[in-house]
Nucleic acid binder design. Structure first.
Length: 293
DNA sequence: AAGCCGTGGGA
DNA sequence: TTCCCAAGGCT
């Protein structure tokens, strides 16, 4: 029989072992929290940190970002990846500035209506910026719950309301404690209950872990699809955007043609970048980041 | 609702 | 080297 997972044990562990990340400092605004959450989507902390600091210095309020051009925003995004996030954040900033008095909404449904903000990010902002009591479910939390609660080796495919309900059931009643508990669950998944080689010996809730009690069985769910990168459209789009990030002057198509030999794929990617609004064509037929010419 | 959307680092 | 994966969202 395993002990029930005690929220206070996790919260205490977090207080002692949680990292001192810049967006966790008490003076960080809700806007700062939102920017961090968008940047952290599928992107490690170490790569986000310097970019987040630069963004906060340049654009301390939503209206500051809204006043920048898309090109400036994309250049400042740098190599964080998935640059459509930057465009959506710019859109969200505009909506916050014009429709919400330059104040990041605290309500989950209002946050969900903003571009680029989905089920995870909306609740993360509500909880971490405003101390709201709501389940915050990311890949770390799904893994921790799969193991500690369900005794599985890893989380299966995301989807359904299953994970949200699982975490809701674990959430302490007290609002402030609930928010810290959510941060603690995520931190545990990132520092201890990791995908590969979990450090169970250092786990504060090992006594309450169903996976541990079950003898740490291997993951037996459906195989996770592997994402290729080299040579894919994503890769070629990255090459094209890298050229445009490096110049302020629009470039002729010949300059873009030089980065990838397969002309068919190259043109398809350039077209998709134009459709996505990540690239613009000037009146004289050259190409540039959007909003600057 | 699977598949797409960038990039870099660690094992 | 190759493979996996990292605070998801959108269509």
């Amino acid at each position: 029989m395993s002990a029930r997972l005690d929220p206070h044990v996790l919260v205490d562990w977090f207080a002692r072992n949680g990292r001192d990340l810049p967006w966790r400092r008490p003076e960080t605004t809700a806007w700062g929290v939102l920017v961090s959450e968008i940047m952290l989507q599928q992107t490690p902390v170490s790569r986000v940190e310097p970019v987040w600091l630069a963004w906060m210095a340049s654009w301390p309020r939503p209206s500051d970002l809204a006043a920048a051009t898309q090109g400036e925003v994309l250049r400042a995004w740098g190599r964080l990846g998935y640059p459509r996030r930057a465009l959506r954040l710019h859109e969200a900033a505009t909506a916050i500035a014009t429709e919400h008095g330059d104040v990041v909404p605290s309500d989950v449904d209002t946050l969900l209506a903003l571009p680029g903000i989905g089920a995870y990010t909306a609740r993360a902002v509500a909880a971490f910026a405003y101390g709201r009591r709501c389940p915050v479910v990311d890949t770390n939390v799904r893994r921790v719950v799969a193991r500690a609660v369900h005794g599985a080796g890893d989380a299966g495919p995301a989807g359904g309301g299953r994970d949200l309900a699982d975490v809701e059931a674990l959430l302490p009643e007290d609002e402030a404690t609930a928010a810290r508990f959510s941060a603690a669950l995520m931190e545990l998944g990132q520092l201890v209950c990791t995908a590969r080689s979990p450090r169970c010996a250092a786990c504060p809730v090992i006594g309450a872990c169903a996976w541990q009690h079950a003898g740490r069985p291997a993951y037996d769910g459906p195989a996770k699809p592997v994402q290729r990168y080299a040579g894919t459209d994503r890769y070629v789009r990255g090459l094209l955007l890298e050229v445009l990030r490096g110049t302020t002057e629009p470039v002729p198509k010949t300059r873009l043609d030089a980065v990838w030999s397969d002309g068919g794929q190259r043109d398809r990617c350039l077209d998709s970048l134009l459709v996505d609004g990540l690239v613009e064509q000037t009146a004289d037929g050259r190409f540039a980041l959007p909003g600057e010419h």
